[in-house]
Write a protein that binds this DNA or RNA. Structure first.
Lengths: 248, 248
DNA sequence: ACAAGTTCACACTCTTTAGCGTTAGATTTA
DNA sequence: TAAATCTAACGCTAAAGAGTGTGAACTTGT
């Protein structure tokens, strides 16, 4: 339903009800949900799409996008992690995919500010979980802010895995300042830093520079990335690992 | 079933199966669960009770104990909190009862290291949630350790609500060092400190002293506390609030 | 003031999930 | 080795939950 609102830009309640063959009440409920997630805006009589920049940074959307690619990247990243070491990662859906596989490389110390990952890893045996505190941001389902940056700076892990919303030839970018600060702090406290991004992030930019690509030791992309984009990164002396995507 | 093991000290599988009229398989499953929660010890053919000091500090047990009292205390404590202020609380089941009611006094800033409370409050509108990071302890479902103490010390809230496992005439006690350190830090960072304990905690001691009762501005107990115990606390110039227990 | 739009409360259906027992196979003890 | 005990796998049942629709009450805009 969200997709239909996106395409049309603006749709009326009754129109949506007819298209999906459901009652107006259900349309209301679903749109309320989408609105609370920041996907659409509601107004009397209908709903309209959000600016794309807004909803692209929204969890509900991010979770559904490029799942196959993220899964592939996650599997590759987990292979880079050695049992017994420590890993820190941020509040990205790519990191969440990584988290799902961390039970396979125990024992492990895991540090994160991402609540969903905390929920996921808390019951896993063999994982020593450290949470980064901070102010809770519902739109990201994670803890950010000064308290979080402080907590990151008090730690050091063997591996840091971060993902950013855009990557050019020279820099990694993100649109939100709060998140940029946390990611930067993470990069400073990892012995080895991994940038995990799917192919849709390449050759794009966003408002804030997170860091130059030299700050990362390894860049992991999925195999749907254009060969020439990968080559350009390699030409700049970056180590680029390509994760093979299996599913359609 | 846990209670029966406690009373008998040691029981055989088949005996339990007959008493509760269930299959031996079910007894196995339930005991495995209780064992993973640290409530009992299993051996071939049966199970035995844990030392009482061990299981009293165990979440699974604490959650089921004195729920009516905790509910009454929680309602009273919530009444002490003003909308717009900030509250910090620890990983006690009493605090969890308080958390359930915090949605009634919004807007509010809430700080805690208790994962279950975080799960509970994260979706509540009107609550600005700050999480205290640290190492995750499955037995308490909370974040403790140096990182947590540091995080607490970096904050200041209007009200601090803590509960301890034992309270004498002069001190509050707790049996675990990690938790004691966090509670102490919390007491130091609250403008007003509330001690919330049900009547079973009174006139008891535990291994570690958390703080003298002077450190608390208000002590909240339930109405099942012996009148003379309350009087003794009041004689020492403590403000003691009594929360009326309604349910049986 | 009226009509369109919205929200609330309740009931219904369908899916999911938790708990239990049975059987069969593995492990341990005597 | 034999008997007892434990574990794993499968299917069943009952309870819980999510999603939906209906009608009444309320709000908003013209």
């Amino acid at each position: 339903m969200a997709e239909h609102v996106m395409r049309q830009g603006s749709v009326s309640m009754t129109e949506l009800a007819e298209i999906f063959e459901v009652s107006v009440m259900t349309v209301h409920r679903d749109l309320d949900l989408l609105e609370s997630q920041g996907m659409v805006r509601k107004f009397r009589g209908g709903a309209s799409a959000q600016a794309s920049s807004v909803f692209e940074s929204n969890i509900a959307y991010r979770k559904t996008a490029q799942t196959a690619e993220k899964e592939a990247i996650a599997r590759h990243v987990v292979g880079l992690i050695e049992p017994g070491s420590s890993v820190m990662f941020d509040d990205s859906t790519t990191a969440l995919a990584v988290a799902r596989h961390l039970g396979e490389v125990t024992p492990l110390t895991v540090v994160t500010n991402f609540l969903e990952a905390i929920r996921l890893l808390a019951p896993v045996p063999g994982i020593r979980l450290m949470a980064l505190g901070g102010e809770y941001y519902p739109t990201h389902d994670s803890f950010l802010g000064v308290a979080c940056v402080d907590a990151v700076e008090a730690m050091n892990t063997d591996t840091v895995v971060v993902s950013t919303s855009a990557v050019s030839d020279r820099h990694a970018f993100h649109q939100e300042q709060e998140i940029v600060l946390v990611k930067r702090a993470m990069l400073a406290s990892g012995t080895r830093c991994v940038l995990a991004v799917d192919h849709t992030k390449l050759d794009r930019v966003a408002l804030h520079r997170v860091a130059p690509l030299e700050a990362f030791d390894i860049i992991v992309v999925d195999s749907r990335a254009p060969a020439e984009a990968i080559q350009r990164l390699r030409d700049r002396h970056h180590r680029v690992d390509v994760a093979e995507v299996t599913e359609p």
